[in-house]
Design a binder for these strands. Structure first.
Lengths: 188, 188
DNA sequence: TCCTTCTATGCAACTTGTTGCATAGACAAG
DNA sequence: CTTGTCTATGCAACAAGTTGCATAGAAGGA
């Protein structure tokens, strides 16, 4: 289960509560792994039961108490073991591509606004990635030189940036195609 | 459920059996949606029960009989309805990225061979995509001009090609980073 | 005061997806 | 004549992920 490993990595980078983890899964870690808070709480509970994590009840002022999790020795060992195992190259799941191919059996022009919406979502995400890169890695506020963890985080973020740029360029290509089809075959 | 819709699109492009669909999900459709035969058979059964598909028993010589599925009117209506609904932009799930970030807590150099393996897998996939593109869209054997379906299939394939190229370039970037870390910090 | 928002945690039910196994006919190689 | 491969279908058990709902303290605004 990769969510377990993503949680171990995130908690090694910095211990935190389920709520905090959920927030990280909306940003940084979420660049390459998504999870909802329900899923995170469930897995945290199981991992703690398995002795992979330590929990510490932290009372807070002005807020509900939280449970701060950190990685226990067996958790770290489990991560190391996983890092040395080969994993299968990703299988792709791209719903929008299904739609694009399905558009041949409906009105392709009707898909234009949907593709534009997705283009915008990716453009927004790219903007957030670039802002984060400037803040954490390339801007004047960034620590220099970076440690190994920072270098690797930056490399992963560069992957996210490359992915968003590629996707935006492809969606522009798709939009061109849809426009061409509209003028070429006004109606099927 | 996007698998249902992927199956509808594939069966509209060409009717076929569960086995044939499973093979398509290893190539063409598999460029953007993966599924195992067990999953396909189960969903086909459910869709047929719901009246979305027609089934026809086809006796064959030299082979076991097969059940050929094709899309019924309600199935086509369901696809059209889905095409007009907005979908959420994809959430990314990239296990290798989790590993890369996790490498900070182990030996980053140990990850090099794993990343190289993934690079090769993506390079192979790119080769298959390019061969397919030449065969079906850009080569001398390809039908010209393409119909709307062909244009859209080609646009999706171009997305797959762009994805593989981007991933290969990123993995090269990651390999550079891992090599740099090895020389910079010989051992943590 | 009430309404909303933010922090914080979690259960229950359901849907999807994966893994392992099983069957069976036809054909080809050894 | 046995073993392996390809076509062809499927069940059962399990793991993972999603959706809806529920609770609760504190802060801030209408």
């Amino acid at each position: 289960m990769a969510l377990e490993h993503a949680i171990l990595v995130s908690l090694l980078e910095k211990p935190g509560s389920g709520y905090e983890l959920a927030r990280r899964f909306e940003r940084s870690i979420g660049y390459f792994w998504t999870a909802t808070h329900q899923q995170i709480y469930r897995v945290l509970g199981r991992m703690e039961g398995a002795g992979l994590l330590h929990v510490r009840e932290v009372p807070q002022r002005g807020r509900p108490d939280k449970k701060e999790y950190s990685v226990a020795a067996p958790g770290r060992a489990a991560l190391t073991a996983w890092l040395h195992e080969p994993i299968e190259p990703e299988s792709v799941r791209h719903e929008l591509a299904v739609k694009i191919r399905g558009a041949a059996f409906d009105d392709p022009a009707a898909l234009i606004s949907e593709v534009e919406r997705h283009r915008k979502a990716h453009d927004d995400r790219l903007g957030r990635y670039l802002t984060g890169e400037l803040r954490d890695f390339t801007g004047p506020e960034a620590p220099r030189p970076l440690d190994a963890g920072g270098e690797l985080q930056h490399a992963v973020l560069r992957g996210g940036i490359a992915y968003e740029r590629m996707t935006i360029a492809w969606l522009d290509d798709v939009l061109d195609t849809l426009h061409r089809l509209r003028t070429a075959t006004p109606r099927t």
